[in-house]
Simulated scan of single mutants.
Amino acid sequence: MIFKVYFQEQANEVPVREKTKTIYVEAGSEKDVRIKLKDRTINIEYIQAVENAHLEYEQLNEDFKVLEI
């Protein structure tokens, strides 16, 4: 399953919508995503499962790239 992760680049940063970045991660669950990203110094705001029509829509974005971890 593909998950869209919303995050701030600095772990100590307060979430500000204008600074929020996203990455896509393939994992079995939200917990697996957190385990895969635990060594990065980012502040995870939200993890969203992306599937079916939503996934097809996200794939149309030129920035769509699934992180290989």
Rank of each mutant, 00 (worst) to 15 (best):
M1R: 11
I2S: 01
F3S: 07
F3M: 08
F3T: 03
F3A: 08
F3L: 05
F3H: 04
F3P: 04
K4R: 09
K4N: 04
K4P: 03
K4I: 04
V5P: 00
V5E: 00
F7N: 00
F7P: 00
F7A: 01
Q8S: 07
Q8R: 10
E9D: 06
Q10P: 00
A11H: 02
A11V: 08
N12P: 01
N12Q: 12
N12T: 07
N12K: 08
E13L: 06
E13D: 13
E13A: 14
E13S: 14
P15L: 11
P15R: 10
V16G: 01
R17Y: 06
R17T: 07
E18L: 11
E18R: 13
E18Y: 09
E18S: 14
E18N: 13
K19M: 05
K19P: 00
K19D: 11
K19C: 04
K19F: 11
K19R: 09
T20Q: 11
T20R: 08
T20K: 03
T20E: 14
K21L: 13
T22S: 10
T22P: 01
T22Y: 06
I23H: 03
I23Q: 02
I23M: 15
I23A: 06
Y24M: 06
Y24P: 03
E26W: 03
A27W: 02
G28T: 04
S29D: 01
S29H: 02
K31I: 15
K31E: 13
K31L: 12
K31Y: 14
D32N: 10
D32I: 03
D32G: 07
V33H: 01
V33S: 00
V33A: 01
V33C: 01
R34A: 02
R34Q: 05
I35M: 13
K36G: 02
K36D: 03
K36I: 08
K36Y: 11
K36H: 07
L37N: 10
L37R: 06
K38Q: 13
D39Y: 08
D39F: 07
R40E: 13
T41Q: 12
T41K: 12
T41H: 13
T41P: 04
T41E: 14
I42Q: 02
I42M: 02
I42R: 02
I42A: 02
I44H: 03
E45L: 10
E45F: 04
E45Y: 05
E45S: 11
Y46K: 15
Y46V: 12
Y46S: 15
Y46I: 09
I47Y: 01
Q48S: 14
A49E: 09
V50W: 02
V50I: 10
V50K: 02
E51C: 03
E51G: 06
E51D: 07
E51Q: 09
N52Y: 13
N52S: 15
N52I: 08
A53L: 13
H54L: 13
H54N: 11
L55K: 11
L55R: 09
Y57A: 12
Y57N: 10
Y57L: 06
Y57K: 10
Y57R: 09
Q59I: 05
Q59C: 08
L60N: 15
L60W: 05
L60P: 03
N61M: 07
E62F: 05
D63E: 15
F64M: 06
F64H: 06
K65I: 11
K65A: 13
V66C: 09
V66I: 15
V66F: 05
V66P: 05
V66R: 06
L67E: 15
L67V: 11
I69F: 14
I69C: 11
I69T: 08
I69L: 15
